[in-house]
Amino acid sequence: MAPRDLLLALVVIVAWGLNFVVIKVGLDGLPPMLLGALRFALVAFPAVFFVRRPALPWRWLIAYGATISLGQFAFLFEAMAHGMPPGLASLVLQSQAFFTLFFAAAFLGERLRPASVLGLLIAAGGLALIGLQHGDGQGVPLLAIVLTLCGGASWAMGNVLTRRFGSVNLMGLVIWGAIVPPLPFMALAWYFDGPERIAQALLNISGSSILALVYLAVVASMLGYGLWSRLLSRYPAGKVAPFSLLVPVVGLASAALLLGERLAPLQWWGGLLVMVGLLVNVFGPQLLRRWAPAA
């Protein structure tokens, strides 16, 4: 990979890793579902008037927006509002890699690889350790972990849908898919929080919440996916995708530096196991193919 493109990949990883700290800042001033509605409204408008719609039927665009945008972030925002620490959220959300394997096997007929199953078992052990103890001596709420895993599953379902699209402009897909979530998010906000809390949050919105929204919409969504799609158009997916393994590293480091998030030893070991599981899933098949002829 050219040095310039390597730098762009690192920019994306830092932008996505910091995303979890920024979500925490946004949630300090806005209810979770309202934060989601405002984020995707900023992503979609006015960008849809300047970015060409992908050559996909509307049903696929709606399905994409309902899974990767609405489902993933509705569960993630609620998880963080219920006590999921930002650093751990960035790690646990990577469970999407394993959900993608199972959904692809179930709906696309893809075969589960032995290395992927081994990686899943290792990562599952890591998730179990993460749930045992939080840095302050208390366990991470089970509801928060389950909600984050549901976010990973929604992301994975969107990944499987994207595979069926074939070659498509990722930036256009992200922007036009963002048309879907705002109204469902507002309906959920109305149901969970009520009109009075929504009005109060909007009337008293702070500067930090506005900056968080701008970051989530412009930096994490538009800039991040725009650069990512550029890299995917220049290099094979197998060379670009492994960079996403660095997102939880940046997420954990930024949460520690900016929010003072501290993990217990068991959770560091759990995080390490999750990362090892992800590495086995990504690189295990290539290593096995290399070792098999030698054996």
Rank of each mutant, 00 (worst) to 15 (best):
A220P: 00
A2R: 15
D28I: 01
H134M: 05
F192R: 15
N204V: 00
L263S: 05
L108C: 08
F192Q: 15
W190N: 12
L10G: 03
P141Q: 03
V249G: 03
V160T: 13
L8R: 13
V250D: 00
L42G: 04
F50N: 07
A2Y: 09
L188F: 15
L245C: 02
G125T: 10
A9C: 02
V250L: 00
F49N: 07
V240M: 00
W16E: 00
V51G: 07
A15I: 07
V92R: 01
F40M: 03
I23V: 13
V92A: 04
R163W: 09
V174N: 11
L34C: 06
G131C: 07
L216F: 04
A199S: 07
G172R: 14
T100R: 07
A79T: 04
L259H: 04
G226W: 12
F50A: 11
G224N: 12
P242F: 05
P242S: 04
G71C: 11
L61H: 00
G131I: 07
G166H: 03
F102Q: 05
F50K: 07
F102G: 12
W176P: 09
F98K: 02
S221Q: 13
N159K: 13
W176T: 12
A201G: 02
S254L: 06
L101R: 06
A89Q: 03
G126T: 13
A79W: 00
T100V: 09
A187D: 10
V12H: 05
G139F: 01
V250F: 09
P141A: 01
L108K: 03
W190P: 06
A144P: 05
P85H: 01
Y225K: 12
A294H: 10
V25T: 09
A105Q: 09
G226Y: 11
I179T: 12
S90F: 01
G17P: 02
A264E: 07
A105F: 08
A104V: 04
L118F: 12
S154P: 06
A189Y: 10
L170Y: 12
S90K: 01
A37E: 06
F99T: 05
T67E: 04
M84Q: 03
P46S: 08
A201D: 07
C150W: 11
V174C: 10
M157T: 13
G238M: 11
G71I: 09
M275P: 00
Y235C: 08
S209R: 12
R234T: 03
P31M: 01
